[in-house]
């Protein structure tokens, strides 16, 4: 079957199998920033923004999202300029092996889009569906705080 999907601002047509997941579709069509982890909705490595909200793409059937809008980690930068969250993840060392990073960035983007001044607890809840096996999660929370400070016009400290 065929579906139309707007991915990172580009409207595209895809031929899919009726039982294919959005994760499989995105990866086989070149969006390799969408990571395949647990394939059970537990790790969050495959997160994408679906109509602006972060979801596990491994749990989404591609046939269900005909006509919808998807943003992957490849779509977060603006014409080569990293988004504030991406810069902050680099600057705080929130990236080690990097496998969880795309999903973390997507989840954090959803959080900040609907809650511009989250508390530390809200940041932790916002990232609670993203597993990281390298860090202790401290750096990612710091990164979100740093991005917030910069986005709200404050200094790095």
């Amino acid at each position: 079957m065929n579906i139309e999907l707007t991915v990172n601002g580009v409207r595209r047509e895809f031929t899919i199998a009726p039982g294919e997941t959005l994760l499989e579709l995105l990866r086989r069509t070149g969006y390799k920033g969408v990571k395949k982890g647990c394939e059970a909705g537990d790790c969050g490595a495959c997160a994408v923004l679906l109509d602006g909200r972060a979801v596990n793409s491994c749990l989404v059937l591609a046939a269900k999202v005909d006509g919808h809008t998807v943003i992957t980690v490849e779509g977060l930068a603006d014409d080569g300029t990293l988004a504030p969250l991406q810069e902050a993840f680099l600057d705080t060392g929130a990236v080690q092996c990097g496998y969880c990073t795309p999903g973390m960035l997507i989840a954090a983007t959803d959080l900040l889009n609907r809650n511009p001044r989250p508390s530390e607890e809200e940041i932790k809840e916002g990232l609670s569906g993203n597993l990281c096996r390298c860090t202790g999660y401290v750096k990612q929370v710091e990164a979100v705080k740093l991005a917030l400070t910069r986005m709200n016009g404050g200094n790095d400290a």
Binding site: G41, G44, A47, L50, R53, A54, V55, N56, L59, V60, A107, D110, L111, E125, G126, S128, G129, N130
Partner: peptide, 12 residues
């Protein structure tokens, strides 16, 4: 609901 699954899953 805040105790239920993750925000990623709750969006679905």
């Amino acid at each position: 609901l805040h105790h239920l699954a993750s925000p990623l899953q709750r969006n679905l």
